[in-house]
């Protein structure tokens, strides 16, 4: 058994788990955050993507013990109260989901992708970056549309915040 201690969505959580416990099972069954899904369970589909220390990883292919000491963000940690995260809002606006099963992983991958491409995204890059996330409903078009839109919105609000800060200074 392992003692694990992590910060999940800003809250310290911990416990004693079997060493073989996967991070995704720890999140779902011990912390009660069931937004992170187990799809293929073979690190192909990306339904289980969460951020560990700021990077998108497949939580079905990592032990909870490996993540001990880390900071984890799941789909439940993105929204600011009742206000959706810009990527969540864009998926809603652009109909980037149908059944919704892959959506938490898609959104966690998308936020990581947008963070790593501050210069902006184009369609080819988004499609390539989505290599590890599978959706069986949408045909991806609206997911790509949503990510491109969110990337623009986030760049705009960042620009606004920067010019505000400039003015204030």
């Amino acid at each position: 058994m392992s003692e694990v201690s992590l910060v999940v969505n800003g809250r310290r959580v911990g416990g004693t788990v079997e060493d073989r416990t996967l991070l995704v099972h720890f999140l779902r069954e011990h912390v009660g955050l069931t937004g992170t899904h187990v799809g293929c369970d073979t690190s192909q589909c990306g339904a289980c993507v969460v951020h560990v220390d700021g990077k998108a990883v497949k939580s079905c292919t990592m032990l909870a013990a490996q993540a001990s000491g880390s900071t984890v963000v799941t789909i439940e940690g993105l929204a600011d109260g009742a206000e959706l995260h810009p990527v969540q809002a864009a998926f809603k606006e652009h109909h980037g989901l149908q059944c919704g099963f892959c959506t938490p992983g898609m959104i966690m991958t998308a936020t990581d992708m947008i963070r790593r491409h501050p210069e902006g995204l184009d369609e080819a890059t988004v499609r390539e970056e989505l290599e590890g996330n599978i959706c069986r409903c949408t045909g991806y078009h609206n997911i790509v549309k949503a990510i491109l839109a969110a990337s623009k919105t986030m760049a705009r609000s960042k620009g606004k915040a920067a010019s505000k800060a400039k003015k204030a200074a």
Partner: peptide, 9 residues
């Protein structure tokens, strides 16, 4: 190699 999440680990 793999996909972005795999490359992170």
């Amino acid at each position: 190699i793999g996909d972005p999440a795999v490359r992170h680990r």
